[in-house]
Amino acid sequence: MSSEEKNPHASENTGVVALPANTAWPVVLAFGATLCFASLVMNPGVGIAGIVLVVVALVGWVRQIFPHEHHEDVPMVAHATIVTTARTEVGRIQLSEVQRSYLPIESYPIASGIKGGIAGGIAMIFPAVLFGWLTQHSIWYAVNLLGGAGAAYWTNPTTAYIAAFHWSGLWIAVVIHAVICLLVGLLYGALLPMWPRHPILLGGILAPVLWTGVLHSVLWFINPAFANRIAWGWFAASQLFFGIVAGLVVARTGKIQTRQPLPFALRMGIEAKELMSTEQEDEK
């Protein structure tokens, strides 16, 4: 658009604002269009009236905006707007000079979580495959349990069937495994810095144990075929394997500074004791 189009309501001289002039053509056009549609349920005469109105309104409208939009000048009334607030002070978090910012102070980069997830996911394959090999002499057993008997809808599979190789089982298992490992890795990357001490203990042992426990109680419902054949010892072992590897990878990645000098409590936004005391001091 031309430059004067760029700001259609620009004021030429101070004290006056050019605004689009009021016009009846839109309402006439709308009414005409409605009549056109209404003629289907009424009678053709209504439609003819509608068409006439539409044509007249369109011509009128074009004349309103062509070649230049019709404007009218509205006088500007001096009005000093004073932006004030009674709340002149701002509470601060006292742990740093930066009062308002992002949480937490330093953290693992998000990529570390992804790396941890990938590493843990790869590490986890070994105990799982070992389990299949030792119990069924098939490296595909664990894979098919997850992918075939679990998610694909194999009806009533036999153990021998599960132990054999199946493309559908393999790719479904790989997708599930990869997605869940990545997500859990991300979660580790996000949550581990909130428990600043013992990342291995928390992420490597406590979390897998909790996770295994939860799965143990609900897996029979999520997936009975899987649950019937699962060996919980092996399962817990592979979870721990994942947890420790992922935790190590995450924890070993250097932390990066975020501009968030806050303790865990404030980082979570859950605890605000420090926050409250600061406020109260300020209020006094």
Binding site: P26, F31, T34, A38
Partner: peptide, 27 residues
């Protein structure tokens, strides 16, 4: 921080179409 919509007349047309549509329904 604008002084009006991009197309003030279209805005009026839109409102009146909506309004007449509703009236037609209740008619």
């Amino acid at each position: 921080g604008a002084r009006d919509m991009a197309f003030p007349r279209l805005n009026a047309l839109s409102f009146w179409l909506t309004a007449f549509g509703g009236m037609l329904l209740y008619f």
